[in-house]
């Protein structure tokens, strides 16, 4: 099984990094461009710091946390469909394809974040979190939640083909309600509890609060809520997988 994972990982990685011209550069340029544009908007037009963290750093954490979640979910969600030809080799199970994609996406995001942090450090920003473990565990939780959702999407799409389109549509509003580009403190208090239903909101705020002890995070932020949601989606995804795996192989 390990050799299958290794084979799939190398195959996927070769494709993602060298599949098209300079594919590896686009993996980093995409979030970077997004980030640069927002940084410009925020720092030049609005404010220099958010809740005590320099705006660019604050944005990076939010964007990378959210992108990690979104990319992992999308990539894993498409894993069965785009590897269907491989399941004729009985050594390769749909599950292998899903797992490997999630792992690869995590690796890519770690690498991309590393590059950006390096650039920021060279530009003279303070990139060292005060409590690194808090930030790391929050980002890991976001990735895990992305994995869970990806598993659900991949398996549900076998029963309901429209699943991927629906989730892709949901990602956009999710971006706006997860606190990626606005601080929790910008939400009027009486509406804030609605946002707290969203596990991503918890993950992003937690990641930022790990960065600076003096960051004014929203009260009631709980990293365990994010992990609970991640575990629930993974469990649900595994149940769905059990239900669909027989049908996948024969398709």
């Amino acid at each position: 099984m390990l050799s299958v994972w290794k084979a799939l990982l190398l195959r996927e990685a070769t494709f993602r990094l060298f599949g098209t011209r300079a594919a590896w550069a686009w993996l980093i340029i995409e979030p970077l461009a997004h980030f640069a544009f927002l940084t410009f908007l925020f720092t030049v037009i609005r404010q220099r710091s958010v809740g005590g963290i320099e705006t660019p750093i604050w944005l990076i954490i939010g964007l990378f946390g959210f992108f990690t979640f979104r990319r992992t979910a999308n990539q894993m969600g498409g894993a069965i469909d785009s590897n269907r030809g491989l399941f004729t080799y009985r050594q390769v199970l749909p599950f292998d394809a899903i797992i490997v994609r999630g792992f690869l996406e995590g690796l890519i995001m770690v690498f991309a974040l590393g590059v950006v942090i390096l650039i920021m450090a060279l530009a003279g920003y303070d990139v060292m979190p005060d409590r690194p473990l808090v930030t790391i565990s929050a980002l890991f939780g976001l990735w895990l939640f992305g994995c869970g959702l990806g598993l659900v999407i991949a398996t549900l799409a076998e029963m309901v083909p429209e699943t991927r389109e629906i989730f892709r549509m949901l990602m956009m509003p999710l971006y706006f309600v997860s606190g990626v580009i606005f601080p929790a403190s910008a939400i009027p208090v009486q509406y804030r509890h609605y946002f707290l239903w969203n596990p991503l909101f918890h993950g992003l705020e937690e990641a930022r609060s790990g960065f600076a002890v003096y960051y004014h995070a929203t009260p009631n932020i709980s990293i365990s809520y994010l992990y609970l949601c991640a575990l629930c989606t993974i469990g649900f995804g595994l149940l769905l997988y059990r239900r669909t795996s027989v049908a996948i192989a024969s398709a």
Partner: peptide, 25 residues
Amino acid sequence: WPVGFGGGLLSSLTGRQNAKFLCRI
């Protein structure tokens, strides 16, 4: 697997890379 089976070739990879993938699995 079925001899001459058509699926699973990744068109952006070379023949060698595709074959190597099979060796690995």
